[in-house]
């Protein structure tokens, strides 16, 4: 199919090689090899306990894989020498239970990480410049100072402006100074999504983003995910919403017993399931 042709050409964002994950004696993921390309919307479905969440959490090493490799931008994240934090900044994650920071206002929830990261970069540049006379003594080719174009205050203004812009995009700008405990589930999850967006990630991982929501709030969250998808964002979504999966996915993975048992476009998978396990699963979820 046409998506298949596009895939092989476009850039691979996440390259998962032979991924295994054990919890003690329990083998949860068994030799998964998978590529996720730029702009893809990969939806993962499968019965409970099949390892969907574990797979997703391995992608940004929230769970350390037992063996295998995960290349993100050409860097193997499972390598313990890699500073995982710098890479996680480019991998957004949205949780089933929202996990907004309870001790921070909505605005702070969104700005916290971008501001810390920007300040860290600024600090590192400043120290680089300060130590330059010293470090240059030991260099053959002398380096020059990094031009510093921003200040802490400027950074704060920028991230706050960006956060407010994102908030107004979801129509919640008046909640900027509210605490998460005062928000509805749908509002919390939409803020969690823009919190991930505020980091300008290259890929966003969603773990059952609507499972903890009251039915009447599922729509608003799915709408936002749809909007984000339209911007071309690469996404990996674990969900039990089969209708949404059909609509948004460019590729669906069916996981069972720690492996990707079957995969393809939504049409292929939902209309012509090949394996018995998938048929059985679909007959249960598509009532």
């Amino acid at each position: 199919m046409e998506t298949g042709n596009n895939l092989s050409e476009s850039e691979v964002i996440l390259d998962i090689q032979d991924l295994c994950k054990d919890f003690g004696n329990l083998k949860v993921l068994k030799n998964i090899t998978e590529q996720i390309h730029k702009g893809e919307k990969v939806v993962i479905i499968g019965p409970s306990g099949s390892g969907k969440s574990t797979f997703l959490r391995c992608l940004n090493c929230m769970e350390d894989p037992t063996s295998g490799a995960i290349y993100f931008d050409g860097v193997d994240l499972t390598d313990m020498r890699v500073n995982i934090n710098t890479h996680r900044r480019h991998i957004g994650m949205v949780f089933q239970s929202f996990n907004l920071f309870n001790n921070k206002t909505v605005l702070k929830n969104i700005t916290l990480a971008p501001e810390l990261v920007a300040n860290e970069v600024l600090r590192r540049q400043k120290w680089h410049n300060r130590l330059l006379p010293l470090t240059n003594l030991f260099r053959k080719t002398k380096q020059t100072k990094i031009p510093i174009t921003t200040t802490k205050k400027q950074i704060r203004q920028d991230v706050e402006a960006n956060a407010r812009r994102l908030l107004s995009r979801i129509g919640l700008e008046e909640k900027a100074d509210a605490y998460p405990s005062t928000l509805s589930g749908g509002q919390k999850q939409r803020i969690a999504i823009i919190r991930a967006l505020a980091m300008n990630p290259k890929v966003i991982l969603f773990d059952e983003p609507t499972s903890a929501l009251d039915p009447e709030m599922v729509g608003e969250v799915l709408d936002l995910i749809r909007q984000v998808a339209e911007t071309g964002m690469t996404m990996v979504i674990v969900t039990h919403e089969m209708g949404f999966a059909k609509e948004i996915a460019t590729r669906v993975l069916f996981m069972d017993g720690g492996t990707v048992l079957e995969q393809g476009t939504p049409d292929e998978l939902f209309s012509n399931p090949r394996s018995d396990r998938l048929k059985e699963f679909l007959s249960k979820v598509l009532v």
Binding site: M62, M93, A113
Partner: peptide, 18 residues
Amino acid sequence: VDSGQLEAARALGLSFPT
């Protein structure tokens, strides 16, 4: 404290101490 709080912070790329 709910373990999700730490997870969310780590997933945003903040270090463990931060």
